[in-house]
């Protein structure tokens, strides 16, 4: 064990949510095999996957009040500007993101990293869904598989995930 700079602001989150919604929280017994990076990040194509409920303006809003969740995802063009996007999500504080989307969906920063040569390129789409999904098995069989297939079809080599 090593020292930490600070513990999480809301401790016991997994236990708290799972007590309120039994079986809703994911728990895996084993780690997956670590996939080695085939070439430098500066030559790789990156995608971003987020449960922040970010979507292009004018697309069908996520169903944020469905009792068991919304298992659909939205494609977000990786060249979009923050002003092109909006958030449909109720389960996390969006006050920061509504002023600067990059605090939860750092699309501008990722575009800059490509322009500066730190990242090779961006996949054509990023992917977004909402985190309020009460059936983790259904999520894994449908939403997660659908996004994984789309990421592979995009030929992305790196996926940065940010569960909101």
């Amino acid at each position: 064990m090593t020292a930490r700079s600070e513990t999480q602001l809301r401790p016991g989150l997994w236990e708290t949510v799972n007590a309120r919604y039994p079986g809703s929280m994911i728990s895996n017994d084993d780690v997956v095999t670590l996939a080695p990076l085939a070439r430098p990040v500066s030559q790789c194509r990156l995608t971003f996957v987020s449960s922040a409920g970010v979507q292009p303006r004018g697309t069908l809003p996520f169903d944020v009040v469905h009792p068991v969740g919304d298992y659909t995802f939205r494609r977000v063009p990786s060249q979009a500007r923050p002003d092109d996007l909006e958030i449909h999500q109720l389960k996390y504080p969006t006050d920061g993101a509504l002023r600067d989307l990059n605090v939860i969906f750092p699309i501008t920063r990722l575009q800059e990293l490509v322009a500066d040569g730190v990242v090779g390129s961006l996949a054509p789409s990023f992917y977004s869904f909402i985190g309020y999904n009460m059936d983790p098995q259904l999520l894994e069989r449908t939403l997660a598989e659908d996004i994984a297939d789309a990421v592979v079809a995009d030929a992305a080599e790196i996926a940065l995930l940010a569960p909101a």
């Binding site: 513990t7 006050d95 605090v103």
Partner: peptide, 13 residues
């Protein structure tokens, strides 16, 4: 990062 929920990449701007 020990940040507030919804602020994984820090603060605005």
């Amino acid at each position: 990062v020990p940040f507030r929920m919804g602020h994984h990449f820090g603060v605005p701007f």
